[in-house]
Nucleic acid binder design. Sequence first.
DNA 1: AGCCTATACTCAAATTGTTGAGTATGTCAA
DNA 2: TTGACATACTCAACAATTTGAGTATAGGCT
Lengths: 185, 185
Amino acid sequence: MALAHTILAVLSHSPFSGYDISKQFEEVGVGCYWQASQQQIYRELGKMEQQGWVTFEKIPQEGKPDKKIYQMTEVGQQELRRWFGEPTEPMPIREDLLVKVLAAPFMPRDLLVKELRHRRQLHTEKLLEYQAKEAEGKVCLPVPVDERFRYLLLRRGIRYEQDWVDWCDEVLDFLKQQESGPSQK
Amino acid sequence: MALAHTILAVLSHSPFSGYDISKQFEEVGVGCYWQASQQQIYRELGKMEQQGWVTFEKIPQEGKPDKKIYQMTEVGQQELRRWFGEPTEPMPIREDLLVKVLAAPFMPRDLLVKELRHRRQLHTEKLLEYQAKEAEGKVCLPVPVDERFRYLLLRRGIRYEQDWVDWCDEVLDFLKQQESGPSQK
DNA sequence: AGCCTATACTCAAATTGTTGAGTATGTCAA
DNA sequence: TTGACATACTCAACAATTTGAGTATAGGCT
């Protein structure tokens, strides 16, 4: 049920349309740590409206479908606060790449190397993107409080990507060592 | 579809019963980077059998239901190899805790601190568990090849938990600083 | 003129994941 | 001896996620 709460968290900053929210889920701000498709968001908003967590105002538009601007209700705020007070559990990692490492002893070594390089590349790109964002934000101080919290999320993203890159290097090093000197069978 | 491939990866080490596999998913070896419930595994094994990726041998047992020992087929091996050659994408992070940080500017600060300490604790425990495992494994060399690959997975787990602990500390520091000197509004 | 992208939302289907109950028995400890 | 725990699997229902199509129009590119 965390999707609903993520939407509530977004709406606590300001009212948005479903489309706006889905855009935010694609961006670095939200999307780098919680993904959801447009369809999921629309459906969830529908459910949330039924539960009274949000209300919407229909904005008629010409040439486009009517926009629905969603806003948190008092009930929604209470729900968010209630959820905020509950302890969370870490999400389990679910990574195809790690499954590949599990299967690796029985697979051609070069395919694994290729894959690791590929992943290293992807994580490096993300990392650079986040670091650019970080440098950008550091220019102008003072910053409003919620910007500072966003910065902490960005830090989480940076660490995460850096960690992946480092691990890829570690594995790549391991494989190189194995190759050069397979001293033990 | 990665669950099926994870099961194939497990079965490439040796034949197992569904129950055995589900046990492995609970352990550090597999479970720390791919979770699945017993029911999921049984269901998946059923599907895989229909597709011809695995076969099973019924082992009658006294006092217990018959055991089904699953084994990869030639087709299953081919499938695993095909999948192994395909590039993988990083899984998106989905963390309640990060959603909480997003909502944090509008929530009581002490609840966030409590939550961060809680999570820091959980990750520290995991970390110690993994590090114990690491130290254990380092005693006796030489090690067979597939043990070495398992070690790389353990390293991924260690890094992951360490990274979470470090980030929690970073956020906790940030909050302490905010508290003591809220110089800018 | 034809195509792609962006805005803005809806509906349906398939797959995956979670939760809980049900069947059966052996072992170990309080 | 009662209750918890481990073995070993099945079935059912629900919730969540993914995938894809469908409706509609404006604006820009070729």
